[in-house]
Design a protein around this nucleic acid. Structure first.
Lengths: 191, 191, 191, 191
DNA sequence: GATGAATGAGAATTCATTCAT
DNA sequence: TATGAATGAATTCTCATTCAT
């Protein structure tokens, strides 16, 4: 049997993803973790802090993934492609509950989420920063066009988002990753 | 003074965008519209239906915008650029509350959104369809690369989203639209 | 077209009988009377006073009916039977909404009905009184057993109630009036 | 101190009888039971279900009482008298709130009662049935007149009602039970 | 007289959080 | 540590009544 704290987190991830933060009750989480309601409060200060913990974990995972990519001996183009691939993998785990690349959700519930924003912003800024660094390097080596690296970084995060949303919106689509990558790297315009 | 119904809608748009659906109370909306709580219920069946009405309005506006672009006598490239420009304008108004712009919210509050989903999906499908048609035409004329038009359509919607998020994440950035457009149309890779 | 006031009363009678006092809204009554909601308040002080008016009308009708029976040249036994017959007829019109022989309803809604109680009690006392007078006379002439006339009067009102409830409880029953009258006049015990 | 659930039920019985269902608030009940408002909802799904529970309890008590009477080794006449005596005792506790005792209430609040009606009808039918059986047996043995037993059963229930109402209407009356019993068993007519 | 839009007090219900055991 | 019964603030929604037109 897992640690109580871990059981709570896993139960919460499952429920937040399925029903959302507001429509998941602390009781639901407790039931899923097979502990009593009160026990939750021995491990977490309040409901939002469960959410915060989950987000933080995923953001850290994302940053760890970026660090690994940075150190690989591959072209910057390949690095960018790798960021997208691994980003999809990590974020897919957390799917819809993840406010990561859905920054709006942070505003979606001001009061409750107030505590999440600074945390999120800190990590988010680092993620953008690290991706921007790779883009900047790619520009220096002449691999990439001369664009604002920060803009490109946000753009890349949205590419990940596009890849995750696409099958939700259009489940029949196959091999869309190739098209996304193509448009992203080479542009929509034919020459 | 505006019509009561219109005042309620505008108050709700402002509040949903600022605080989100759950943390906006009916009383808040009433206060913002300068009517009594009960008055809301003369114009709307319940709280979710205010939300639905707002969403529908924005989706219809989006579709109307697409129709106008379709009829313009400009290149497909210019049409796509125009879609993005006008999309930004429309969605900016509704910012954070807009579930299209932030499809994750649909899962962020499953039960609430259940009623909205069919409505949303209907319009969303039409929007994707119309954008895809333009892309398809552009491919035929040789303006665009040969990619799956549906993939490109979702991609374009996410470009709009990127453009809206960027200044929120990094308020110092200037002229980022140009870079976004450049990456989108010509790709990140230099040649 | 009837007078407005009369239209309101008839609409209310119909609705109170069908849905009860609490679940009939003033708006319902107005719609049924084909007047605007506000118009009701030109004719009645408030919602309970519509109810009061209806009750008063029926109680007066009951008393009028008793007065007529008193003057008839028939035996006391026949008078009592007549009271029951005409009581059934009058009360049936108002059926379930009638708190008359459902004195509990007066307590069923203390606050709202507070105004009804004195009115009701006044008439009710008179009705009991008049019936008791007839019973007393019957005892004097030797037609009836020597029982407390007031007890007999309430008993008689409950006979009316029994006759009205029976078909509601058991719709298949036929000719039950005869059995009720028999038990009432001659008793259940065989001799 | 009683169990919480029991305290809630007793508080509700007292209040429903005094003020009626509609004018008793959940807060009232909670205060009377000395628990918080929310606690009510740990024991009952909603307000009507408190009512239902109370009704069911009293109906079951009535049936249990009938079963006991059935088994007694006394004449049918004595059984019938016993039914009335014990009926008075049981129903007095629940007085005004009891819809059996006051079947009109069923229509006094149609929507509310819709959920109660099937429950009520089930028990009510059994009560009538059991009383009717006793009457039928009394007719067979020659104790009772040859009347429809179902009619007599409803008649008996109304006798109970008469006995409960009488002191409410006329508080000065003494020994009225004897007169009621006399009229019921031997009839009003003198011979 | 007549209207019906607007009001707002009041009710039922939910659920995060506490705390005695 | 763990429990889960109890709490009560907060929210949605209803509807009798008012009042400007």
């Amino acid at each position: 049997m897992l640690e109580v704290r871990e059981r709570i987190i896993r139960s919460a991830i499952k429920l937040f993803a399925r029903k959302g933060f507001f429509e998941t009750t602390v009781e639901d989480i407790a039931r899923g973790a097979r502990v009593a309601k009160g026990t939750i409060y021995l491990y977490f200060k309040d409901k939002p802090s469960i959410y915060t913990t989950i987000i933080e974990r995923h953001l850290q995972e994302s940053i760890q993934s970026l660090r690994e990519i940075e150190m690989q001996k591959i072209s910057h183009r390949e690095k960018v492609v790798e960021i997208i691939k691994r980003g999809i993998k990590i974020w897919l785990k957390f799917k819809n509950a993840h406010p990561m690349f859905s920054i709006e959700n942070i505003n979606f519930a001001k009061k409750l989420m107030r505590g999440i924003k600074p945390l999120f912003m800190k990590y988010h800024a680092e993620i953008i920063e690290r991706i921007a660094e790779i883009v900047k390097a790619g520009i220096r080596t002449g691999e990439f066009k001369n664009v604002n690296p920060a803009v490109a970084a946000v753009y890349i995060i949205n590419i990940i988002r596009t890849a995750i949303l696409l099958p939700q919106i259009n489940p029949d689509l196959k091999n869309y990753e190739q098209d996304i990558e193509k448009i992203f790297l080479e542009g929509l315009i034919r020459r």
